[in-house]
Design a protein around this nucleic acid. Structure first.
Lengths: 184, 184
DNA sequence: CGCGACATGTAAGCAGTTACATGATTAT
DNA sequence: ATAATCATGTAACTGCTTACATGTCGCG
């Protein structure tokens, strides 16, 4: 029982009070490189956190009737989050990857199909890398150590390194399959 | 509904007939870098695959009474697996990573604690890399394109690249946190 | 007046983890 | 004998995805 989504939400609320909709948007933004959740998971979790006394909300009205629940961390919520944040944890066991599973069985795939699969995967990682580099260009140097942007920058760097490694590997895969082909 | 475990099992049975226990062991071996499952997930899945007519089993006796169900792919199973294997898929959306989530909120952590967390994570990735390099040393060059070892080698290379990227990033994190500290 | 963004929720089902439960075989 | 490994299963629960369901607000 890790309740990681709980801490993702508490962490965001620690930065700013916001609604479930806003949290949903954040998880579609810079966080989505390493954590994501649908609104169908976020709203029930917020309800649970309210019952646990870690967050509280007040209702705001946008326009004339549209309700918006703006959540804020309670002192207990802040404490729980801080405790989690500073806790050393075991490295994640298995980052599951369907593409790598396919490649594990690649001896059953003919060269042409295999190179097609690799090219398809490569395209997607290259597009992602371009996107990440675009975001990186928006940072001018390393953000202030105490600003929210600091963690943002760290994990962006991590995502870039990760994509670069994936691309390097995929190119190596193509090379190996091609090389094995030529030897015949 | 992806049923990825289904295809992991079919793929292993395509290599060799084996029991649920053997499949469990394989998923603790070289596959565990990108797919894993407990026996409590494997046995019910094998039951389901049998009902679907994709695998069949015969009971072997080890010793005098201990039963062992040895599963084999049926023609339908082989066909289903092959179709899946050659299918292009979208890249996985979010490889969830709790450590990166912590780092996202790192502006809330003091330098010493933060460097401790990074060092702890780094240790684990370095140990993993050593382990992977050991396995790599057991391969003498690239295995035959048509052997089971071929895919094994490809994904091992991928795991090494991945760990190297993680290590490079963690060292960069330490550098950045240290750098930000000195500036004060 | 229609479309996209804002806003919140529930239900059903699949995937995965932890714990419960049992027993045989082999090596020390 | 006793511990590690072989061997198979179920139950309860958490986590996550997809689909269902509803309604407002602002812009063109």
């Amino acid at each position: 029982m890790q309740r990681t989504l709980k801490y993702a939400i508490l962490g965001l609320l620690n930065q700013n009070s916001m609604s479930g909709y806003d949290i949903s948007a954040k998880l579609e933004g810079s966080l989505k490189e390493f954590w994501s959740a649908n609104h169908s998971q976020i709203y029930p979790e917020l309800k649970k956190l309210t019952e646990e006394g870690l967050v509280e909300f007040k209702i705001e009205i946008t326009g004339s009737v549209l309700e918006r629940k703006v959540y804020t961390l309670t002192a207990a919520g802040k404490e729980d989050f801080t405790r989690w944040l500073c806790t050393k944890a075991d490295m994640i066991a298995t980052p599951k990857d369907v593409f790598r599973l396919r490649m594990f069985f690649s001896n059953e795939i003919d060269d042409e199909t295999c190179l097609g699969l690799v090219a398809h995967e490569l395209e997607q990682h290259e597009a992602r890398l371009v996107h990440l580099k675009d975001i990186e260009a928006g940072f001018h140097g390393i953000p202030d150590r105490n600003s929210d942007k600091f963690g943002d920058y760290l994990v962006l760097t991590g995502a870039i390194y990760r994509e670069e490694a994936a691309i390097r590997w995929l190119k190596r895969c193509a090379e190996i399959v091609d090389g094995a082909q030529e030897k015949v």
